[in-house]
Design a protein around this nucleic acid. Sequence first.
DNA 1: TATGAATGAGTTTTCATTCAT
DNA 2: TATGAATGAAAACTCATTCAT
Lengths: 204, 204, 204, 204
Amino acid sequence: MREQQMLDAAVRIFGQRGYMAASMDEIAELAGVSKPLVYLYLTSKECLFTACIRREAAALTAAVRAGVRPDLPADRQLWDGLRAFFAHTAEHPDGWSVLHLQARTHGEPFAAEVAAMRAEIVAFVTRLVVVAAREAHRDPDLPEREVAGIAEALVGAAESLAAWANATPGVTARQSAATLMNFAWAGLSNLMRGHPWAPPPADS
Amino acid sequence: MREQQMLDAAVRIFGQRGYMAASMDEIAELAGVSKPLVYLYLTSKECLFTACIRREAAALTAAVRAGVRPDLPADRQLWDGLRAFFAHTAEHPDGWSVLHLQARTHGEPFAAEVAAMRAEIVAFVTRLVVVAAREAHRDPDLPEREVAGIAEALVGAAESLAAWANATPGVTARQSAATLMNFAWAGLSNLMRGHPWAPPPADS
Amino acid sequence: MREQQMLDAAVRIFGQRGYMAASMDEIAELAGVSKPLVYLYLTSKECLFTACIRREAAALTAAVRAGVRPDLPADRQLWDGLRAFFAHTAEHPDGWSVLHLQARTHGEPFAAEVAAMRAEIVAFVTRLVVVAAREAHRDPDLPEREVAGIAEALVGAAESLAAWANATPGVTARQSAATLMNFAWAGLSNLMRGHPWAPPPADS
Amino acid sequence: MREQQMLDAAVRIFGQRGYMAASMDEIAELAGVSKPLVYLYLTSKECLFTACIRREAAALTAAVRAGVRPDLPADRQLWDGLRAFFAHTAEHPDGWSVLHLQARTHGEPFAAEVAAMRAEIVAFVTRLVVVAAREAHRDPDLPEREVAGIAEALVGAAESLAAWANATPGVTARQSAATLMNFAWAGLSNLMRGHPWAPPPADS
DNA sequence: TATGAATGAGTTTTCATTCAT
DNA sequence: TATGAATGAAAACTCATTCAT
């Protein structure tokens, strides 16, 4: 459809130039249509950007979802999800730039949009952590906020690794995923087993 | 000095509006001076932004450095550094926005500036990981890229947690640091002990 | 066409205010269009000015060329050319100001543009002088630089007379041309006949 | 005196950059004084420019006057005056640029200033033409406007030659003067002898 | 007398956005 | 449905000019 061409062009331009530096002229030209048509379909620059964010967010979550089989064990689900995530971000650098950099850098309306997607992923990871605890025959007596923080950290680590892998030639999605699993899962399982890291007394 | 007022205002505006959306008019007004004066002291919007990045980067690394005592064990150093990091970013949200979001989103000259600071921090963490391995009586037979990836992930996790903590009321720097230590350090020590997470065979 | 309106306005403003003192605002207003439209058609102030210079130079040379019949004797050609020149500059004082004053006063790119036109005219006059010498059965044993200097002086005299005539009410193109022919042609023919003015000895 | 330094600097900057492109900052810096001092002595940019014009005009007329001895024959006076004129303009290119280009390009107040000087020179030349006619035992039955036009043309030719000589390396003041004398004087004397160039009938 | 510090007003230029067709 | 033509509003930057000392 005509609209998809426009979104393709917009994601490319937004991802490369940034939201503000991107010009509607350039987007229309790259899409091969006239500017008024872009406005007819997508109303305004803000709407167009929002549409880009939504589409790319949907594509990313779909890719991750498609990579995961919910009947497998939690660590395997995490491993599969991470590989799907790293593979997708590597294949769609402009889309990833829109989600990870541009959307968060230009004010509430956009940041909220991407925060929704992020929340979904964090929730998925949180569920995995809880399931893992159950699989380890341990009730998650970790306070909810602690689990949330952990999931947040894990997702943040994944996002950083994605950016790093995109910028470092020769790093594959598989390697990124393995690094993160190594780093994170072992820590998590330690946690599950009741060996948390003990902070020194508060006064220091 | 007058220049500091201007930088204060600029960090605030850049941090909230973003680099491109920030107008020199607004910055000058917030600083309580006239626009030409801003140009007299700071030459151009680019220079002003670069000066902001440098000042905030220096402040952040100084804060972390001041929080760490190099004669203590590696885990204690990491704990102290993280607390200092989370405390500083919580106290200077605009500065953190400039460094973490704005500087990375607006082209090489700025990204390079912040990449230098980040590299310094990643190197610090990498050193801690290696020292930790030594303290655990284990030679770091982890390949160099693996260590780099881990440090990258850890720093990324910290950055994400900082943003999350800034946006989630009631999360203290201490809690963020504890979450991350729990999450990361245990995983690391597992790794040190030679119990990496084993990925499933490649075909799957 | 719309572009012509803009050039008309630009020539008028540039001619009266000067290149630097002319503001794009004023030009757009006089042209009855919005400023962005001027930029759409003519790209920048420099381009606009260059376009003015080219158009006026072309118009002037065309007017002179149209006034001259190459099959007539040299003096008649000069006479006709001068009349055409004075008539055109009198009818287009702003265009003449752009060519004679503004373009030469504002840096190489513009000066070069008008120098090309001037060179064409000087070449035309030079050719007439040589032809006149041949018609007078005299080989032009005048050194080349001498001829060039004479042509230069003649063109300069014409330019000055044009400005003077523009500023002195009641002086017609015909009168200006006659004055210059009287002044110049007689001197030239004297020269041809081998009666140059003899400078006093060098020491004085 | 301090004021002379400032005028020196101003003439240089105005001559090279042009009136509008010249900045008071640059002038003050080149003069080695502070900007407020320039304003103290010379009131405003316009006044400063006017002062430059006046000084350079006075210097040029003084140089020409000093080169001429009123007791010599008219052609000798013209010859001497021209040599002085070409020598002075060659030695003071910035001053000449101010008078010949800048002052005439930036509106009435300045153009009037230089027109006064020019009128003085034209009057001097006109007087020479009249004297020459008398010396040739011929009453100047040339109409006054004709004589004025001739003087105007002669001065214009001189100005053009000066610019040309300044831009053409290797042309000396003496050569320029000789070229112009050859070109003009012979024509003039022809005129005196009652052999004007006869224009073709008006209808053509 | 001399100046460091400061600014109001104006410049060119760009861009999201909309009619008229 | 599609667009060529047009613009209102704003941004970065500069400069002649003036206080306060």
